[in-house]
């Protein structure tokens, strides 16, 4: 994927500059740190001149000081738990997982403590864990995962997954300002491959609101993250054959924008749910169940789900390509569904 070449933008061209998805994340972190002295960054290799494995935090230490860009030892469980302690005291830490795959090491501190604390006794935990997720870049089982379903299944968390540079900036700002623990799944394959218009300065995209990326009358594709771009490409190809597709970008996975999901499903009567995460018991299963339960009378065909296989994410190109949905598979599933 190169350039914003999928026929959509999510901000008026006049309102900002074209920057990459990665630059948008970095810009948002700096903006939030500038705005609120309680915001700080911590994680492995984030500090100094190095600026993290993906260079998202490069330049922050020089600008904000080592105290606010805290380099940690390799200890995800404890530095994530540390962020919870900081958040309870009123700081707003942004924790960088070097890869989303490593988040399981911190799982206990996230799901057992951070997520439940407000419900159990009223303590607020306003942190963000940034989780560089997703594959397609030949990184193998430990550097390609999409573990969002674990966290969507956990009461008390919020989960976001931006697909565009503007949303990457705006959703991160909203996540930092939210008083709850938010897991922010950034899609590694989009880091430098996607450019888009991003508003200068203040830009906040509210949590819990999906975005309709395009509209078509025949079917609805509901997706998020990198698969938004694959779905837009598929929709473009379908249009040339006279099949109109609506594409819904969920943007926030918890809480889900149920109204937009159900309205978009009802409008076309045919729905495909797509994500890069493995399909079994994934977020798409919940979306499909919501539609089956609440929009059944509007449906003109089965709700179709596309997702990763029930395997670890494999390394070698033929294997990973077989694992992952892509524009061609979405298009072919859409053609079958259109004929239903």
């Amino acid at each position: 994927m190169t350039g914003n070449n999928f026929g959509f933008t999510d901000a008026p061209a006049s309102s900002g500059r074209e920057i990459t998805y990665l630059e948008a994340i970095a810009e948002s972190i700096a903006h939030e740190m500038e705005r609120d002295p309680n915001v700080l960054v911590l994680g492995e290799d984030v500090g100094g001149d190095f600026g993290g494995a993906f260079k998202v935090t490069k330049g922050l230490a020089a600008r904000f000081g080592d105290d606010r860009v805290l380099n940690t030892p390799i200890a995800e469980l404890s530095f994530t738990g540390m962020a919870t302690g900081m958040a309870l005291m009123g700081l707003r830490p942004i924790v960088e997982m070097q890869f989303a795959d490593f988040i399981s090491t911190a799982f206990d501190s996230i799901v057992q403590f951070a997520a439940s604390t407000h419900y159990r006794w009223g303590g607020r935990v306003p942190w963000v864990v940034r989780a560089p997720s997703d594959g397609g870049i030949r990184s193998g089982p430990y550097h390609s995962q999409n573990p969002e379903a674990w966290f969507v299944h956990t009461p008390g968390l919020k989960v976001v997954a931006p697909a565009t540079p503007a949303d990457a900036k705006g959703l991160l700002a909203a996540a930092v300002r939210d008083d709850n623990p938010v897991i922010y799944f950034e899609a590694k394959p989009l880091y430098r491959s996607i450019r888009g218009h991003v508003p200068d300065g203040e830009h906040v995209v509210p949590l819990g609101e999906a975005s309709i990326r395009r509209t078509g009358a025949d079917l609805t594709i509901i997706t998020y993250g990198s698969m938004v771009h694959e779905s837009m490409a598929a929709a473009g190809a379908l249009e040339s054959d006279g099949i109109g597709a609506t594409v819904v970008d969920l943007r926030t996975l918890k809480p889900l924008d149920t109204d937009t999901i159900l309205d978009a499903a009802a409008a076309t009567g045919k729905v495909i749910v797509v994500h890069a995460a493995n399909r079994l018991a994934g977020v798409g299963a919940e979306v499909a169940a919501l539609i089956a339960e609440h929009a059944f009378e509007s449906l003109d065909g089965p709700v179709v789900r596309l997702g990763g296989a029930d395997t670890p994410v494999p390394f070698s190109p033929p294997l990973e390509d077989a694992y992952r949905p892509n524009a061609a598979r979405i298009e072919s599933a859409a053609r079958r569904l259109a004929e239903w």
Partner: peptide, 27 residues
């Protein structure tokens, strides 16, 4: 838990109290 009394509610997975307290100390 009652932060007005300087008390963070008991963390049943007891070793998790350590990183939480470290975060308080680092604050």
């Amino acid at each position: 838990g009652d932060l007005s009394l300087g008390i963070i509610g008991f963390i049943s997975h007891i070793p998790q109290a350590l990183p939480t307290a470290l975060g308080v100390a680092m604050t």
